[in-house]
């Protein structure tokens, strides 16, 4: 688990209110709160992981431009931001697929190389295996498990981000975990 503490709802809502007033300092604060998780989610969700930084930038630019559209009564700030991220990742993957089909882009990286050289080979291999299994999951299961693991969102936050019920999210997570457990045990 990561060392940072998740931001409180009150803090996040105060930051969004400041953002709606056009305070650029609030944008920096929002990025500090949710930037790492959104970048992590994008890196795992995108076919080309190196585009995660671009997607993360776009998420926060959209938040800046449309801050006044955020309604605190309709859900958490995290859900609102991750919903933007989920949609952007879908668009990126769709456009990337077409670009690869017509040969504009090269094939996607076979595995994520973000851990860097200092991470031992075993961990990289485990990560690559897990990513490969996650890629085979149905889209909604993949989104739910990545929002949980990479974004560290609660069931309610995931439900808001995906526009579904908490019960449906729980079902998606149960199925995703079962597939991951079975496939990863099989490979070990």
């Amino acid at each position: 688990m990561t060392a940072h503490q998740p931001p409180t709802q009150a803090d996040a809502k105060a930051v969004m209110a400041a953002l709606a007033r056009g305070e650029r300092a609030a944008l920096a604060r929002l990025i500090a709160m949710y930037g790492p998780g959104i970048r992590r989610y994008a890196a795992q969700s995108l076919t080309v992981a190196s585009e995660a930084e671009d997607v993360a930038q776009e998420v926060f630019l959209r938040a800046w431009r449309h801050a006044e559209r955020y309604d605190p009564s309709k859900g958490a700030v995290s859900s609102w931001l991750y919903r933007i991220a989920v949609n952007l990742c879908i668009d990126h993957n769709r456009r990337g697929g077409f670009r690869r089909f017509v040969g504009i882009d090269s094939m996607p990286e076979p595995e994520d190389d973000t851990p860097g050289a200092e991470v031992e080979y075993g961990a990289r291999q485990r990560l690559a295996q897990t990513q490969a299994v996650i890629r085979t999951l149905p889209t909604r299961q993949k989104q739910a498990i990545l929002l949980k693991a990479a974004g560290e969102l609660s069931g309610a936050e995931i439900a808001m981000a995906l526009g579904t019920s908490e019960g449906a999210v729980e079902q998606l997570l149960v199925r995703a975990r079962a597939t991951l457990r079975a496939r990863l045990e099989l490979e070990e």
């Binding site: 688990m1 990561t2 060392a3 940072h4 650029r24 944008l27 920096a28 990025i31 500090a32 930037g35 790492p36 970048r39 992590r40 890196a43 795992q44 930084e53 993360a56 930038q57 926060f60 630019l61 800046w64 973000t114 851990p115 860097g116 991470v119 961990a123 485990r126 990560l127 897990t130 498990i145 949980k148 693991a149 990479a150 560290e152 975990r177 991951l180 457990r181």
Partner: peptide, 25 residues
């Protein structure tokens, strides 16, 4: 299981948002 998965995806460099912040601002 979720914690193990989170740990697998987490990298220390993820927490550094200076570059991201600069680009967005």
């Amino acid at each position: 299981f979720d914690r193990a998965l989170s740990a697998l995806f987490a990298h220390p460099e993820d927490e550094d948002v200076a570059e991201l912040s600069r680009a967005v601002l």
